[in-house]
């Protein structure tokens, strides 16, 4: 990262911690997520990967007595300062979930809905087509647009969820183990899609699949749990470095499969 040009960052965290009541789930995270790159968050189960990811678009607002300290900066604005609007923030930071969760509506409506509530004015058909193309789904569903989204396969549903996310034109897309519920072929298609998407979007992906992180991401954050059961980022670097020359012994154990 010793570039002459300071890279542009999509997200910068300063000592970000997430607490549930008196329990600290994630402690002291300091990462800089570069724009238009794919950043993977890896680590053993229960280390707070998803919790950290969900704090990036304030999905943890819906968890009772969840509290966030530290800073999470987007374009210099702290996401957790009082004057930030969570609804607008989520529009800028889209999210794809672990299990595909299309709305019980038609394929077309699944994409149009988010755009419509966000005040989209323009040719909706065009937007739907573009988004589906962007998610590499158009060819498969162009004749089924009025069919229920539930008639699609799991992999198609997940790409539909990606399509509806890019339809609202966010800056950042968060992906929470997006392929964990899918078969290997669908998984591969999602990974290819991510490479396509990073031309326009910054992507942060949580994964428990080491190969996936190694294959698909540019940067990797390694998380681990400490003796107070709080998760934290122990190493954050180029994916290549993490997988070939990790600085931390625990990272090395984990990526080489010696852990747990």
């Amino acid at each position: 990262m010793e570039n002459n040009v300071e890279p542009e960052y999509a997200i910068v965290t300063n000592d970000l911690s997430i607490h549930y009541g008196s329990y600290t789930a994630v402690k002291g995270v300091n990462v800089k997520v570069e724009k238009q790159k794919i950043t993977a968050i890896i680590g053993p189960s229960g280390c707070g990967k998803s919790t950290l990811l969900r704090s990036f678009n304030r999905m943890n607002d819906f968890v009772p007595n969840c509290r966030v300290t530290g800073e999470l900066l987007l374009q210099g604005q702290n996401l957790y300062s009082k004057d930030v609007d969570p609804v607008e923030a989520r529009r800028r930071i889209g999210m794809v979930f672990q299990k595909p969760n299309p709305f019980p509506k038609s394929i077309y409506e699944n994409i149009a809905w988010g755009a419509r509530i966000n005040g989209f004015k323009g040719n909706m058909d065009e937007l739907v087509e573009q988004s589906l193309r962007g998610a590499a789904l158009w060819e498969e569903v162009k004749d089924l647009l009025q069919k229920s989204a539930y008639e699609l396969s799991g992999g198609q549903q997940q790409r539909l969820c990606i399509a509806r996310t890019i339809a609202i034109q966010p800056e950042i897309i968060l992906m929470d183990e997006p392929a964990s519920a899918l078969d290997p072929i669908s998984t591969l298609r999602i990974e290819e899609l991510m490479q396509e998407l990073k031309k326009n979007y910054t992507i942060i992906i949580v994964t428990h699949n080491m190969q996936q992180a190694a294959r698909a991401s540019d940067y990797t954050a390694m998380m681990m749990i400490d003796d107070q059961r709080s998760g934290g980022v122990i190493e954050f670097d180029d994916t290549k470095k993490i997988f070939t020359r990790p600085k931390d012994k625990r990272t090395e154990d984990y990526v080489t499969g010696r852990f747990g």
């Binding site: 966000n118 005040g119 004015k121 323009g122």
Partner: peptide, 16 residues
């Protein structure tokens, strides 16, 4: 790259 971008209200318009 994305011609539809302008169709979404931005900034103050979005806020309103």
């Amino acid at each position: 790259m994305n011609p539809n971008k302008n169709h979404f209200p931005e900034g103050d318009a979005f806020r309103r």
